[in-house]
């Protein structure tokens, strides 16, 4: 329904006043599809380009290269209405000087010709839909708790009846108990409105619970993508394996032998040659230092590793 093809976003930087221009490849050729009623999770460490991806898809920034399109809708003006976003920080994402009602109505004021009373009905309807009460309409954001604010943010994202919602770490700033509430709300809304979610997270237990497909990113590139079940059961990329075994589990039976990574992710200003992961990879070979692996299909998912088959067998 929504297709992204080889999206890239580069930032020019200079480290000193007269230094040479360098390019940070925050996002380097990521492709994926979103489908109505399904959730694609984007996971990876900080700095891997997850949030850049969110900014491109919501048209906050234009891509340097690549394109995305909504099937049956080539017009970018109307496309903007179809893609909305929920941010991580529920405190910064609501205008402190406006009442909840006018925060929710702003998208309608800009994009529709609705009358004041109609907008009010819409906003109050959406408030009840996200589990708040109609009297919250005339309160200010600072009167709400973090979880309630995130509900307001979700309500605002849905005011224009979008087809796609980008959720940029929507629960990682919330308490564990509130996280579950917001996730349940998101899933209930998905069922009701047939939404497609692009769910960005670094919390794999959240991802496992909510998503249908996974896209694992490392330094601006996709290293593995496919169905959640396939990847969570048998990850093929050494990086995915390391990520998955790093999730703590309460049940001793689910604890796996941890794959420990050496070092830190390299700076995106200075990406290693060949496979970007080779300096930290437990199964690195000579070829990895020279050749950059392309995404290829291995055992039912796409993976960018020269030795994915070996990694699968070893797992």
């Amino acid at each position: 329904m929504f297709t992204c093809h080889r999206l890239c976003r580069y930032y020019p930087v200079r480290d000193t006043l007269f230094g040479a221009h360098k390019t940070i490849k925050a996002l380097d050729g990521v492709s994926f599809d979103l489908h109505a009623g399904r959730t694609l999770a984007v996971v990876g460490e900080s700095g891997c380009g997850k949030s850049t991806l969110a900014r491109l898809v919501t048209m906050i920034e234009p891509p340097t290269a690549g394109r995305f399109s909504l099937v049956g809708d080539g017009n970018s003006k109307s496309m903007r209405k179809q893609v909305q976003i929920v941010f991580q920080d529920a405190y910064g994402s609501l205008n402190p000087r406006k009442k909840v009602g006018s925060i929710l109505e702003e998208p309608l004021v800009i994009n529709t010709r609705m009358q004041r009373a109609e907008r009010r009905d819409e906003a109050i309807g959406m408030l009840t839909k996200v589990g708040l009460r109609p009297e919250h309409y005339s309160r200010y954001p600072h009167m709400f708790s973090g979880g309630q604010r995130q509900r307001i943010a979700v309500a605002r994202a849905l005011m224009l009846r979008p087809k796609i919602v980008v959720a940029d770490e929507p629960v990682s700033a919330l308490d564990i108990s509130i996280q579950a509430q917001i996730l349940n709300l998101l899933m209930a809304l998905q069922d009701e409105l047939n939404l497609a979610y692009l769910f960005i997270s670094h919390d794999l237990s959240v991802v496992e619970r909510i998503c249908d497909e996974v896209l694992v990113m490392y330094l601006g590139r996709a290293v593995e993508q496919g169905e959640k079940r396939t990847i969570f059961q048998k990850p093929a990329h050494p990086y995915t394996q390391a990520l998955l075994t790093s999730t703590p589990f309460v049940e001793p039976g689910r604890r796996a032998q941890r794959v420990l990574l050496k070092g830190e992710p390299p700076s995106p200003m200075n990406v290693p040659s060949g496979c970007a992961f080779h300096q930290r990879c437990p199964i690195v070979k000579e070829q990895c230092r020279r050749e950059q692996p392309e995404l290829r299909e291995v055992a039912g998912r796409w993976v960018a590793c020269h030795f994915a088959e070996a990694a699968l067998r070893g797992n």
């Binding site: 919501t58 048209m59 906050i60 903007r80 209405k81 893609v83 909305q84 976003i85 941010f87 910064g92 994402s93 609501l94 205008n95 402190p96 702003e106 998208p107 800009i110 994009n111 943010a153 605002r156 005011m159 224009l160």
Partner: peptide, 9 residues
Amino acid sequence: YVVASRVSG
């Protein structure tokens, strides 16, 4: 919140 405003057009 400013970015959110931009996203809503």
